[in-house]
Amino acid sequence: MTRRFAILAAVGTIALAACSDNTGSDGEEAVTDLDRVASDGAAEAAAKALPAGDFAELTLGAKIAGPRGEDVEGALSNAAGNFADIRSYVACPAGIDPCDPASAPAGTVFTYVHVVHPGEDNDPSTGDGEGNTSSDVERASEFRLTMPAHGFTGQAGYSKAEALAAIGAKADVVVTCHEGGIVWTVNAGDGGDQWEQAEPLTFYWQSTVPPAGPRDAYAIFANYTAAHGPGPYPAADEAAGNACTAPRAAG
């Protein structure tokens, strides 16, 4: 798994977040462009990236209330300890309340949302809390599904405001597919601010398949190691398809 993370980290050369020169010709700070490719050399990698939406632009309806409530909280961990706090939920489109997959209209698109805090969120009542054993995360560079994204529509993204708050104007988040799953590569370059300890970053993806229950289907790459944990996950549904495995149109 670590080798796969290293391979995908190379995709982080795409600047979907900001250009390296952040000053306009009049000396004023230029507006950050989170979706601009920084160089011609990144064009090939950019062709493999999915359009990254902004979580702030979503209008969601009610959340699904599963066996563990509306929010699924936990830790992303490995044998060395916990490396991130994760809170996840699944919401229906705006106007659907309550959000019950059994009565939702055919074709309903469910939004899977994951709020990830490297280390922990400093709230002992949630997530890994007092069980946190890696409370000094200096660099987190990737969040991903480790299993196929059943029913994935091709729509995914993250909170661009949170990325800017955590990393600054050089924030670089690229969304790609790998073995049927979704990967968010967070690249802040060398030195300076990184996505690090207790800085929340929200990721989302959309599926036509509702969650079947929590699964250990999510991972973070933090402090140069992979750590895994639970979140809502859809059951396999061949009829629903998966944008990460469907052929992509040329052009």
Rank of each mutant, 00 (worst) to 15 (best):
G129E: 09
G129R: 13
G129P: 04
G129C: 12
G129D: 13
G129F: 07
E130R: 14
E130S: 14
E130D: 14
E130G: 13
E130T: 13
E130M: 11
G131E: 06
G131L: 13
G131R: 15
G131Y: 07
N132C: 15
N132F: 02
N132V: 10
N132A: 15
S134R: 13
S134D: 10
S134Q: 15
S134N: 15
S135P: 12
D136F: 06
D136H: 03
E138R: 11
E138Q: 12
E138L: 13
R139F: 07
R139M: 08
R139C: 04
R139A: 12
S141Q: 11
S141Y: 03
E142R: 09
E142V: 05
F143P: 03
F143N: 03
F143M: 10
F143V: 12
R144F: 13
R144V: 11
L145W: 07
L145R: 07
L145P: 01
L145Y: 06
T146L: 09
T146R: 00
M147E: 13
M147H: 03
M147I: 04
P148F: 07
P148I: 09
P148H: 05
P148L: 08
P148Y: 04
A149K: 05
A149P: 07
A149N: 07
H150Q: 09
H150N: 12
H150V: 08
H150T: 09
G151T: 02
G151C: 07
F152V: 08
F152D: 06
F152S: 09
F152A: 10
F152P: 06
F152K: 08
T153V: 11
T153P: 09
G154R: 04
G154A: 08
G154V: 04
G154W: 03
G154F: 06
Q155Y: 01
Q155N: 14
A156L: 14
A156Y: 04
G157F: 09
G157K: 05
G157I: 07
G157A: 10
Y158S: 06
Y158N: 05
S159W: 00
S159M: 03
S159V: 03
K160V: 12
K160F: 07
K160E: 13
A161T: 14
A161G: 10
A161W: 00
E162H: 00
E162Q: 13
A163H: 00
A163Q: 01
A163I: 01
A163L: 10
A163F: 02
A163M: 07
A163C: 02
L164Y: 08
L164F: 09
A166H: 02
A166F: 04
A166T: 02
I167M: 10
G168P: 08
G168V: 05
G168E: 05
K170Y: 04
K170E: 11
A171L: 06
A171V: 09
A171H: 09
A171I: 05
D172V: 02
D172R: 15
D172G: 11
D172C: 14
V173L: 13
V173I: 15
V173P: 02
V174T: 14
V174F: 04
V175A: 11
V175N: 05
V175D: 07
